[in-house]
Amino acid sequence: MSAGPVPAKLAEIIDDFQDLSEPDRLQLLLDFSRGLPELPERYTAHPELLEQVVECQSPLFLTMEIGDAPEHRVHLFFSAPPEAPTTRGFAGVLLEGLDGLTAEEVLSVPDDVPDRLGLTRAITPLRMRGMTAMLGRVKRKIREAR
């Protein structure tokens, strides 16, 4: 279990969610879903480079690029279909909150960060588990790469 500090950008997103009423939090998650960028061509042309996160209810594919030492900055790439907006929204939050951080910073993100968005009641604990699984997969891939 990691219990480090929440990176500034992710902390800001958590605050944004916490400041809203429940229906508005869902709206914000929808904005993240809409804002999830398309994969760059090097991945759309090579879907075999993406890994499926099977713990998510809807298909979610993920890959990452890790920069040079000493920082090992992490760049994340997610793909999920438009009929899975909740999954896309979670991916969007992780992308905006974590992309460009060092491997060390990502690894120390607390594992319960998804629960801090204040969405559990509206989204259901089961659906929230998908986001926790996504974060877990990101960390595992970083560890495997080192």
């Binding site: 869902l26 879903s33 438009p82 999954t87 929204g89 259901t124």
Partner: peptide, 9 residues
């Protein structure tokens, strides 16, 4: 729906 946000899209 199963996906709680799908209606909103």
């Amino acid at each position: 729906d199963e996906d709680v946000l799908l209606y909103e899209t």
